[in-house]
Every structure is written in C-alpha cells, then in structure tokens.
C-alpha cells in the first residue's frame, strides 16, 4: 500500500521539476521550486536518506528561498523605476524567445532521453550486497563515530568534504571579486519594527541551539556540519535582514578568520597527521571522535559565515543601483 505514497510523490516531484523550468512567470517558477524542494525532501525520506533530507530541507527551504526572493525583487519589472528599460528588455527577450525556441526543446528532449537511458542502466545494474555498505560497516568502530554517513564524510572520504568546504569559500570569493567588499561593509539602520525585532530575537537562540544539536547528533545519527552550518547561517541572515549586518559589526580580520577557519584547520590537521607518518586525513582511531567533532564544529562555523556573507553581499549589491536611482 505504501507504494501509493511513492507514486504520488514521484509524480509530484517530476511535475514540479518540469513546471519550475517551464512556468511562464518568474514568481511562479521560484515558488514552484520551493515546492519542488519539499517534494524532494519527502522523497529522500522515503528512500531512507535522512541526512540528505535534512540538507535539502535546510538549503531549499531556507537559504535558497531567501536568495531567490532577493533575486526575484531584482528581476521584478514592477520594482524597477526605469520602465522603458524593462520594456525594451522584454521586447528583446520575446523576440529572442520566438526565434530560438526550437533549440532548447530539442536539447531538453535529448537530455531527457539520455537521462532515462542512464537511470535505466543504473537500475539494471544495482550491485549485489549494497555496494560499499558492508565495508563501511566493518570499519565503523575505527572511525570514531557511530553513524556511517558521518564516518564516510569526515573520516573515510574527508578529502571530499574538505574540498566541498573549499567550494563554498570559492563561490564567496567569486562574489567578492565581482561585488567588491566596500559595499558589503556598508553599515545599515537597525530595524524599528517591534514585531520584527521580537521575531528575530525569539528565533536566534532556537536556530543556534538546533544547529548545535544537529552538529552533535551527527556522531550517532543523521545530521552534521553542513546542516548545522545552514541553520547558523540563518541567524546571520536574520540579523542582516533586521539591519544588523554581522560582518560590518565585527573587525575585518575576525570575519576573514571565521570564513577560513574550517578549511584552514582541516588542512592543518591533515598536514600534522602527515608529519606524524600517516596519510592525509588518516586520524589515529583513539582520537578520531574528538578530532571529527572539532573539525565539524569549525567547518560549520565557516559554512555559516560563508553563507551569511554570500547573502549579505548579494543583498547589498543591488542596494547600490537603487540608491543612485533615488538620488538622481
């Protein structure tokens, strides 16, 4: 009977994925994308991947949501003062649209056929014995944690995780390079609205506590640094939206330290381990649990700082043209 749930979920997820690409209006696509994130999180739950479901919930419902809302305002024709410009842009867009509609369709169909073939192949060739599950299970006592996913992410394949933290930092650096750091250091006015202040004050400790809980529970169950990082980043984003940009309130060296802490400590630890005769990220089993917890905490702090900085930067970047418009 539970196959009924799966069928509805699958239909919903695929329908939403298509609609988030094909819907005519930008606001429709953005909000359909949120619904798609929800359907995907439920699908991950049904597949038994709770870790991925938490990450999907945190990224899709929280971080991407705010980024998309921010971008939506940028692209919304109603909020643009320069009416002619948007109309001209619309004309160009519609002309382009009618001309080159065939190519994207062909590409879409080709991609779909290819994807279906690949997934058929993947379903056909499921390895016996569940792939690497058994070897992870046998090595689990040496990893220092009890949850296989955390063991893989932070011990067996720590290299991957380290690079992933680097990718987030790299994205931030790209935004720095295009946006400039001056804008993002611009001080803001604290929010006057009493309701907004109270909501932010109420949610800040909850977000912090639940993030710390997810970080710690990562040892023995679904959770971990990335999920905790997103929840802590939500604090920074809330404070930013409330008119207290975190990065303009702390000294600059501290901000840079927070951003690079996770990547730097991970790398330092790897080198120290290599100096001790082991390979990169090969923790001694006796200290593995403590080391993983330290690495995860610092990584979560760095991820939170990076996501906050990304949002702060993107949010401030569009402030500038608006300011110019209002003064001229």
């Amino acid at each position: 009977m539970s196959v009924l749930i799966d069928i509805i979920l699958a239909i919903l997820a695929i329908y939403l994925a298509f609609q988030s690409l094909l819907a005519k209006r930008l606001t429709q696509t953005v909000f359909i994308f949120f619904a798609f994130g929800l359907a995907l999180a439920l699908a991950w739950v049904r597949l038994g991947a709770i870790d991925v479901a938490i990450t999907e919930a945190a990224i899709a419902a929280g971080f991407m949501g705010v980024l998309f809302l921010d971008a939506l305002r940028d692209f919304s024709p109603r909020t643009s003062n320069n009416q002619e410009k948007t109309e001209a842009a619309k004309d160009i867009f519609s002309k382009k649209n009618t001309k080159s509609l065939l190519l994207p369709r062909v590409a879409l169909v080709l991609g779909l056929v290819l994807f279906l073939l690949i997934s058929l192949e993947a379903i056909w060739n499921i390895p016996d014995g569940g792939g690497l599950t058994v070897s992870v299970e046998t090595m689990l006592p040496e990893s220092g944690v009890e949850h296989p996913v955390t063991a893989v992410l932070l011990n067996f394949r720590a290299y991957d995780t380290w690079l992933e933290i680097g990718v987030i930092l790299l994205g931030l650096l790209a935004i720095f390079a295009t946006g400039g750091i001056k804008l993002y250091l611009k001080p803001d006015v604290p929010a006057q609205d009493i309701l907004l202040r109270q909501v932010i004050l109420f949610f800040t400790p909850i977000l912090f506590l639940f993030g710390a809980f997810l970080l710690y529970i990562g040892k023995s169950g679904p959770g971990g640094a990335f999920q905790a990082g997103v929840l802590w980043a939500a604090i920074g984003i809330l404070l930013h939206l409330g008119g207290k940009p975190v990065f303009s309130m702390i000294p600059r060296w501290l901000g840079q330290l927070l951003l690079t802490l996770g990547l730097g400590f991970f790398l330092l630890l790897g080198f120290i381990l290599m100096a001790g005769g082991a390979t990169l990220f090969e923790y001694p089993p006796a200290y593995a649990g403590v080391l993983i917890l330290i690495v995860e905490t610092l990584a979560a702090i760095s991820i939170a700082a990076a996501l906050t900085a990304i949002f702060a930067n993107l949010n401030q970047m569009q402030e500038k043209p608006n300011d110019i418009e209002s003064t001229t």
Binding site: F34, L38, A41, V45, I50, A53, I54, A57, A58, A61, G62, F63, G65, V66, L69, D70, R73, T79, A191, L196, V199, I200, F203, I206, L207, F210, L214, I217, G221, P222, G223, Q227, V230, L231, A234, I237, L238, L241, G242, N315
Partner: peptide, 21 residues
C-alpha cells in the same frame, strides 16, 4: 529532525519577503 529543520527555517522566508521587498 527534518520536520524541525523545515519549521525553524520557515521564518527565514517570511522575514526575507517582508524585509527584502
């Protein structure tokens, strides 16, 4: 835990909408 994650992050969208727009 997944449910709580959805729950606590839902506020972000609302505040985001109110403040950004």
């Amino acid at each position: 835990n997944v449910a709580i994650t959805f729950n606590v992050l839902a506020i972000l969208l609302v505040i985001g909408l109110v403040q950004v727009w």
